[in-house]
Simulated assay, not measured.
Amino acid sequence: MTDTMLQGISDPLYRTKFGSLPDIISDWLSESGGLYKKDVLEFGCGEGTAALGIAIRKEAQRVIGVEILDVFEQCLPLAQAQLGITELPANLYLRKIAPGSPLTVFGTFDVIYSWSVFEHVSQELLRPAMASIFEALNPGGHFFLQIDPLYYSPNGSHMMPWLREPWAHLTMQANEFRTKLFDAPKTEAKVRNEWAVYIPLEADTSAERAALWETYETLNRVTAPYLRRLAESAGFEVVRDYRTKTEHEIPGELLDAYDREALTTEQVVLLLRKPR
């Protein structure tokens, strides 16, 4: 049934979130039994497509998706359009929370995961968020944490659809960077679809660019080594630490000011475990 559902998806991005992403997380957790019959929480679920994929395709016992925005209300309409289902499964719960809210109000979990969300956590909430996730895991439970792109990498501004120059956010003055973002050509429909979590569908160009600027301004500056130290200081054991690098040539002026490792590390994926 689930293979048939995947074949019927017309939107490639939806197929990635519903199909590929749950597969990746399940593979990383294969030594501990994957996601089957597990209690799972997604930290920053967006519109809830990945959580839906885990609930249906991986047959998790319970999937809670938490989000600070209202975008999860799009989960069912998107699923109706892409999967043809008329109601969400009984094992899926999508909830809005305030930034910094404790996660234990939803119980405890075998697996918590976060995909390209942790870079959007406010700097002062990074340590409390990590502690909250640790607290909400069962002993022996796992936290799968992925960030791509990291702030100091070539695409770290997240604004590459509009400003394609690598490291533009580090080489340009802030006012010049903002002006170029606001003056960039009209956003393609495909990009608007990919950015639906951050850009309201009804937003005009001015509102869209304001939303993009706010997204950029509120990115934290976490690096891969700091993220690992943050996890370990919360009590996590690091099971696996995977990083990917850029092949872009670094401008010389950046090497005068920044660490090469920070500039070249684009992605970090950590598999963390709460000790028994």
Rank of each mutant, 00 (worst) to 15 (best):
L21F: 12
M1A: 11
L163R: 09
V40M: 04
A211Y: 09
G65A: 01
A207F: 09
D259W: 00
V269H: 02
E176D: 14
E165G: 00
L35F: 08
V269L: 10
E42N: 03
Y216S: 06
E67K: 09
Y152P: 00
G46I: 05
G46Q: 03
E208N: 10
W167G: 09
L145W: 13
Y151Q: 03
S10M: 11
S30C: 02
L145S: 13
Q74N: 14
G46C: 02
Y152K: 07
E266L: 00
D148N: 15
V197R: 15
K180G: 03
S157A: 06
Q82N: 15
L150Y: 06
T104D: 11
E266H: 04
M130D: 07
Y216L: 07
F182P: 07
G141L: 03
S10V: 14
T215V: 05
K190W: 04
G33W: 08
P89Y: 06
H248F: 13
F143A: 06
L150K: 03
K274F: 00
V121C: 06
A210T: 10
Q173P: 07
Q267W: 02
M160L: 06
Y258V: 01
R229Q: 13
I97A: 10
E87N: 07
P275L: 01
G252R: 07
I24F: 11
A131D: 15
P225Q: 01
R62C: 09
K180P: 03
P275I: 01
N220I: 04
I24N: 10
Q80V: 10
G100S: 13
Y242E: 15
E194L: 04
E176H: 06
N193P: 00
W195F: 03
L126K: 14
V222Q: 09
R209P: 02
V121N: 04
R62G: 04
P139L: 07
D241V: 04
L150M: 10
E253M: 11
A79R: 00
P275N: 06
K58L: 00
S153W: 14
I199N: 14
I112C: 09
I54T: 00
